[in-house]
Design a protein around this nucleic acid. Structure first.
Lengths: 170, 170
DNA sequence: TCGGCAATATAGCCGTTGCTAACTTGATGA
DNA sequence: TCATCAAGTTAGCAACGGCTATATTGCCGA
């Protein structure tokens, strides 16, 4: 290693480090980060998307179940999510906390207005992502698999671009 | 609600629930899940991808830092990831545990052979994802943002499809 | 040489998402 | 009617990934 001579851009021009470590939020991009333009923002963004992902998955699934079966049972939700029932119960509690779903103990789960709208949005986005993947040559079954993870990171603007692409390719 | 008459496919044909709750891994897709073809697998898959994502991000970033600055310091890693230094330290500990990086206390972080290979793979994948997004009409800066989250869910087969698409598209 | 400071590490907290085990509840059939 | 048992909930644990606060270390300049 050469710790004595790291080709740092300009160590002297930067304060050795934040003298004020109050909160290193992405608010202060800190141009002194070597070569660091906005990396942190990207990761922060991705992290936040991930936090939403679970809610989106549950909401969409509950919507599907209600549509297909007339109601969403915890057992079915858990089975489809591939988790144990208590895990599903806990997730539903979070949905309730966030105002996306309602549920009375030992009864089915239902979506609020907000939750239903989210479910629709998620469903559309999912379909669009799958279609784009298919359009660029990904086999449909594989597209379905990968879309599950991808969709949560597709911003609304990117989604719009996807739709334009599909339209003009129609 | 109509809990008395859910249009379930065939409740009687299914055992009320797993009499053997040992482990409800996706090993047993459980065809009795209503309409449940392989939903659980998808989510399990996405969950696993997510678990890898953090490692991939760190490894790629460490590779970048070494290339650009000659060494990867914890402070730089933390700044670029947009996290506090202890968070980065903890992540590096995990990288070490998983055999992706080496680090001596108070010295820089380095990649193992395995880690370096992962970094290369991740870098290529990231670039490819960005190019595909751009190719379908997403503005480049937005593509960079969204790719950060998307890339971790792009399977190797899908990646291959992406590359073919880019190739034949010139 | 050695004192001070920046960089790193450790300790300890919180929230999330998994899990299993054990308890409740409600619906069903004898 | 009521006993039974699946479905659901609650309790409690582990691993992660954040954070702040505090302790170490190592480096550099006086």
């Amino acid at each position: 290693m050469s710790p004595s001579d790291p080709p740092a851009p300009d160590p002297a021009a930067c304060p050795p480090h934040k003298p004020d470590p109050r909160i290193q939020q992405p608010d202060a991009p800190d141009a002194c980060t070597p070569e660091g333009t906005g990396h942190a923002d990207r990761f922060t963004r991705a992290r936040e998307a991930q936090a939403q992902a679970l809610l989106e998955d549950y909401v969409e699934m509950i919507g599907d179940l209600i549509e297909q079966l007339g109601e969403a049972r915890v057992a079915d939700i858990a089975a489809r999510m591939g988790v144990a029932q208590p895990t599903a119960t806990k997730a539903i509690a979070r949905l309730k906390r966030e105002g996306l779903a309602t549920a009375r103990p030992y009864r089915g789960v239902f979506l609020t207005e907000t939750g239903a709208r989210m479910a629709d949005r998620v469903r559309v986005r999912h379909r669009t992502v799958v279609e784009v993947l298919v359009a660029v040559g990904v086999p449909r079954d594989l597209a379905e698999l990968d879309a599950e993870g991808i969709e949560h990171h597709v911003s609304s603007q990117t989604l719009a671009a996807f739709q334009s692409y599909l339209d003009q390719r129609g």
